[in-house]
Computed example of a mutant assay.
Amino acid sequence: MTLFEIIILAIIQGLTEFLPISSSAHLILPSELLGWDNQGLAFDVAVHVGSLLAVMIYFREEIIRLTAAWFQHGLSKQQTDESRLAWWVIVATIPAVFAGYFGKAFIEQYTRSALVIACTTIGFGLLLWYADYTAKLRKNIYQLTWKSALWIGLAQALALIPGTSRSGITMTAGLMLGLNRESAARFSFLLSIPVILGAGLLSTLDLLEANIPVDWSAMFYGIGLSFVSAYTCIYLFLAWIARIGMLPFVIYRLALGGVLLGFVFW
């Protein structure tokens, strides 16, 4: 990849990892519009590392509190708000683990087309609009139950289908379950930590087994740029989401899906 391609793809990955607009839909556009090659396994590892560092540093205080509470109260009868929330993150992660293990081969073979990505970008965008439009917005993140966490986790498993958007579908589920916008977003971002970590580890293992030469400068730029763009995205999204709602992202998804459909049929 050229330096320009590295910069653009790293920024795209960092932004779209956490915005409800689908990273897979955006990463297909450079190849469709400009004929760029696939970003490659090593670069994929780099942007995963950058995104993971961003979300862990931003939520470092919550991570410390939840981890300490889980080890102190997680296995006792006297649960605290933090230990319960730590359990709900674990519960919500389980469906994605099973879906990834059993469904990865099928999804990679049958769903990685521009048509599928266009349809899921539009369809799940409309679902996000419906969830936001009808949302009760009454509950905060500590009012989640294990059933709610499981439903959000099942929704997250759908994000294996390209174009769905992991953050988008988990926020959609959170809104449907009565969470306010900020709580739905915060729980979605906390859920991203084990998912990104797992995906990054799997990509690293694949990279080691493939014995592919590594462009270390591309790795450095990928980590740095995806970190900056992802951290900025999380900060601004949480600061604005209560005021702006999901409609701007829905409109964007519909426009993006329309562009992709144009490439498919024209």
Rank of each mutant, 00 (worst) to 15 (best):
G40D: 08
I251T: 12
V47Y: 03
I107G: 06
V214N: 14
I6K: 13
G14F: 12
L208E: 09
Y235V: 11
R84A: 01
K136H: 13
L201K: 00
S51H: 07
A218S: 12
S51W: 10
W216C: 08
L115R: 05
T93A: 01
F18D: 07
H73D: 05
I107P: 08
F249R: 01
L179Y: 03
W129F: 07
V195P: 05
A118R: 01
N180V: 05
P30N: 07
D215Y: 10
L190F: 06
P20A: 00
L127E: 07
N140K: 11
E62N: 14
G222F: 11
L207S: 15
G222S: 09
R65A: 15
P162S: 01
R166I: 08
R166L: 11
L256D: 09
A131L: 04
I161F: 10
T80N: 06
Y231H: 09
L128G: 01
E61M: 10
A69R: 07
D206E: 15
T204R: 06
W146E: 05
A230W: 14
F18Q: 06
I8C: 14
L260F: 02
P194M: 05
P162I: 02
F187D: 04
F265V: 08
E5Q: 15
L33E: 02
L154P: 13
H73W: 03
G168K: 00
I193V: 13
K139D: 08
G74Y: 05
A230E: 13
R60Y: 15
